[in-house]
Design a binder for these strands. Sequence first.
RNA 1: UCCCCGAUAGCUCAAUCGGUAGAGCGAGCGGCUGUUAACCGCUAGGUCCUAGGUUCGAGCCCUAGUCGGGGAGCCA
Length: 490
Amino acid sequence: MGVRNPPRFRVESNSTAYHFFDGSNFTMTRTKVVQILKTVPPGTEVDVRGWVRTKRESKQDFAFLEVNDGSCLANVQIVVDANVPDYSTLIKQIHTGASVAVIGEVKESLGKGQRVEVHARTLKVLGTADPQTYPLQKKGHSFEFLREKAHLRPRTNTFGAIARVRNALCTAVHNFFQARGFLYVQTPIITTSDCEGAGQIFQVTTLDLAKLQQLRGPIDYGHDFFGKKAGLTVSGQLEGEIYATAVGDVYTFGPTFRAENSNTTRHLAEFWMIEPEMPFYELEENMDLAEAFVRSIVKDVMDHCADDLAFFNERIEPTLLTSLQNIVEHDFIRRTYTEAIEILEKSSQPFEYPVSWGKDLQSEHERYLTEQHFKQPVILTDYPREIKSFYMRCNDDGKTVRAMDVLVPRIGEIIGGSQREERHSVLIDRMQECGLNPADYWWYLELRQYGTVPHSGFGLGLERTVQLLTGMTNIRDCIPFPRTPKSAEF
RNA sequence: UCCCCGAUAGCUCAAUCGGUAGAGCGAGCGGCUGUUAACCGCUAGGUCCUAGGUUCGAGCCCUAGUCGGGGAGCCA
């Protein structure tokens, strides 16, 4: 778990020794491209290893290689000339995609476009990439094409940058909560609580389905692995509440599974979610935390991935940096659902779906509020109880619950949360109102029976946050190996 | 799951009214060059998604299917 702020190690100027701040040392010969470009002084001999992005070959016995190793967006330019042993043989073997190891000297570059470059003394081709079959080329590819090459797409600029942003985001998440004394709690992936109230469940079974099909009778889950029907988690919230009402502020950070047949740019069947849960928090503190959280992680990623975000701003979404800056610098707007309905009703916007109190807001309504009306993130609260989950705390008006949704431009809902219903009898009533059987939630109810406290929490979708941070429009490009209906190849 | 759109060279795409399959990039070869999305010339490269159908003739029209994309719903 990356809870410590980078840099975590220091590199000697000859860049062969790593001295970790925790006291450990080891030597390795490889110098990462990011170090060559940013810290290694000219005159240093380095051992660079990576994948060739382009080769620009002169027939007069020298060539330029652009080598990338994923340590940063930029490539390092390698100058190879006839003094390198086996020059003409080796250079013929190298095309886009080949892996190479180069030992050479860092020099200030004569050409434009880079501060330094590496003049090769020796060149080794670790692996060739046949240009007739290697799918990636110098030119850009469509994201649809690259999705079918998920094993190779991290070798592209865009997907390398996404990987670094995602990593920085995960670190920022842990940093935020660890700095505030939250405990990182692991909630189960496999659950038997059939009805967590959030969507379709992937069933987990060791029963022989082919055999069951022949038997045709009712299925006896007593013979299944767990002795009852089991599935993959759709949320760690209920278990998070257990720890929140025992050890204090907690957060979960793990995979979540929804078996919905969703085919959109915002949904995955397997995605990662961060779910903090805090005792003694009422909705206002919950909102304060959610807002501080979003702004903190955005700022951290802007600080640590400046080059990558500049790339996204230039190539993917021209409003990216200003919209992120906007999030960091301005307070989020806070309105109730009822106020939002009034705004929407007064607007002259021609909505496809009519606006009326009691109906859930459509995507177009949410987008209007955050993109057109307020032009910044909005937190909406106190939704009608009919359209929200059973565990949300009922307001005294009898009509609304203490729910909150955080809406951001371009994405829509990025956080959903609430103050939880901590009153035992009210919760039972709400379960029955929602058609749930309280007996199925016996342990959840006991949290209210014994030492109940007001508490709150929310869930943030990791991949939607990656969308927010990168401007990538399709969520399938924001996770290394997306799972969607009819698609789980890699 | 519903609505709309698409599938043609390795990639991105074009092909007029149903009449011989095209370009750019990439690749190979040659030229030129401290180059940098290099540049110039030549060459090779096609089961037009699949299966039926209509027609003298289908990349193009019709039917079914597969896969992909966008939008909606569900939500994070």
